[in-house]
Amino acid sequence: MDAIEVRGLRKSYGSNPAVVGLDLTVAEGEVFALLGPNGAGKTTTTEILEGHRDRDGGEVAVLGVDPGKAGRRWRSEIGIVLQTATDAAELTVRETVLQFAKFYPEPRDVQEVVELCGLEGKADAKVRSLSGGQRRRVDVALGIIGRPRLLFLDEPTTGFDPEARRQFWELVRTLSGEGTTILLTTHYLDEAEALANRLAVIAAGRIVAEGTPRTLGGRDRAPATVSWHDAGGDHEVRSMDPVPTVAELAGRGAVSGLQVKQPSLEDIYLDLIGAKA
């Protein structure tokens, strides 16, 4: 069984279509990244999958269940990391995590989750006193305390400093190693490249490309760019097979600044949303 199966998903707000016939399949155990500009339909799609929002049409199965009709058992098997919550300001981190642990049939150990999320130094601090990045870690802790089979991470590292992001990536890899399926939405392409087994780009309410970080949008088949500088100035050659070009340059001598570049994930991404947006 796939963790997430979506076919022909549609949702409009009034006369504004947000999602127009979206198809998506996420296999169990996968880390799947959903990329796309603001307003492309990422959050709407995720919220429908989480059971937070009704859909207008299409078929959706999350852990084999329609999220629009799902019950408590289903909710105990998913974890959601919210994007903009500011709740529980007067409770301490530990009190908040402990409270949520009690809602689940088989929660993780509270202390273990606090440490896993890098909050051990802040366990007895009030949530109100935390920095934005620390607060996001509490969101993550609340998302994983119930030992979810499927975890929704909606822009989880917004507001993190580089070190905190690296730590968070390690946490995602740990969870993934334990078999948790993860649906990640993010603006950071390096994050998607570092974490995702597969990813999809969403633009104007539908999926415009899908693949692995290596193959997305034909990245593996795109021509490489060879650039160098010599007495004649700057040169650039695009080629499907850059090796002979490089070999020829090696024979010439007096070449500086030699670079062979495959298009980056960002190039591919900008191309994809530029073409369709």
Binding site: S76, A88, Q99, K102, F103, Y104, E178, T180
Partner: peptide
């Protein structure tokens, strides 16, 4: 891939118990 499906025999916490947890919070 390891299956980590929860055994469906585990009981969900009671509404009353969760209500009291919420009340304390």
């Amino acid at each position: 891939m390891t299956a980590i499906a929860l055994p469906t025999t585990t009981t969900l916490p009671s509404t009353l118990g969760n209500g009291l947890t919420r009340g304390a919070a």
